[in-house]
């Protein structure tokens, strides 16, 4: 308990000030994206009103870019990658935790290299490989890279969760005659659901926001993700403030909406996956 009200007030003032600093720039961009050009420059800090309200920027973004396609691409890439990272990650985490065999510790170490070493440094060879495999400029290439990128961290996090599942459960399943594969898919996997939030923070967010791999692996407009698409659009229309602000807002708003809906799970996932 903060016994002195004055000190409590001080703490709140600091936190409110910092929250304003965190939220202000985002609000400013979103707010001005709904205003006409004159109002953007005339009174940047004023919210849109009846006279200044305008959707001209949004209309331009829809007309001049494939924003819907970008969005769909990002959704496909992120969801498919997440599914595979979770599935393969959970399977590997279970096998490494549950079955000991010669070399399993070495394998676990090998898999953990990717936690610390960014996959980006292999870009030169990745691009060559994708070109050779004919996967250049496809969403498949992005998915493969993102799965490889997400696996080490997800195996690490999921191993922690697997270890928290009581050992008696798999013993009971074995006494019950449940085959080993079914033990994973029907007993263990359903119990890993709470881990999804934690894995999401560490894998989905970087995938959704990544600029690097779309930049080097996709060249045509139809395979751009939202991050790259918006980046290219912004570069092209840099002087058209309405369009720029609208494009930024359209990239911000879905993320903020999803974040607000799931923030409790995401944050509890983050603090659970953390670390003493």
């Amino acid at each position: 308990m903060l016994n002195q009200p004055a000190r409590s007030l001080g703490v709140h003032i600091i936190l409110i000030a910092y929250s304003a600093l965190a939220l202000g720039p985002i609000l400013l961009v979103v707010m001005n994206s709904f205003k006409a050009r004159n109002a953007i420059f005339g009174a940047p800090l004023a919210p849109p009103n009846a006279t200044t309200f305008s959707l001209v920027g949004y209309a331009k973004v829809f007309k001049a870019s494939l924003i819907g396609t970008y969005f769909a691409n990002s959704l496909i890439v992120t969801l498919v990658s997440m599914f595979l990272v979770l599935l393969f990650g959970a399977m590997a985490a279970w096998a490494l935790t549950e079955y000991k065999f010669r070399g399993s510790t070495a394998l676990a170490l090998f898999l953990s290299i990717g936690i610390m070493v960014p996959i980006r440094l292999g870009s030169v060879a990745i691009l060559k490989m994708m070109r050779a495999a004919g996967l250049n400029d496809t969403l498949t290439a992005l998915i493969l890279v993102y799965v490889a990128q997400g696996l080490p961290m997800s195996i690490f996090i999921l191993s922690e969760f697997v270890q928290q599942i009581p050992k008696d459960l798999r013993d009971a399943a074995r006494c019950d005659g449940v085959p080993e594969t079914r033990i994973f898919f029907e007993v263990i996997a359903p119990l890993l659901r709470p881990a999804i939030a934690t894995v999401a923070v560490f894998t989905i967010v970087p995938i959704w926001n990544d600029l690097w791999f779309p930049l080097i692996l996709t060249s045509s407009d139809s395979t751009h993700t939202i991050t790259l698409g918006v980046q290219q659009f912004l570069g092209q229309y840099i002087t058209d403030w309405n369009s720029v602000l609208a494009a930024l807002s359209m990239a911000i708003l879905p993320v903020v909406a999803i974040y607000v809906i799931f923030s409790r799970q995401l944050i509890s996932g983050l603090t659970a996956g953390a670390v003493k």
Binding site: P166, D168, D171, R174, C175, D176, G177, V178, V187, L191
Partner: peptide, 29 residues
Amino acid sequence: APAERKIAMVFQSYALYPHMDVRKNMTFG
């Protein structure tokens, strides 16, 4: 393997499958 030994085991922690109801817990094996 345990399943082939015609044994059944009751655990200290009960080891009930948390995501299955009582009937499913009993029939699962």
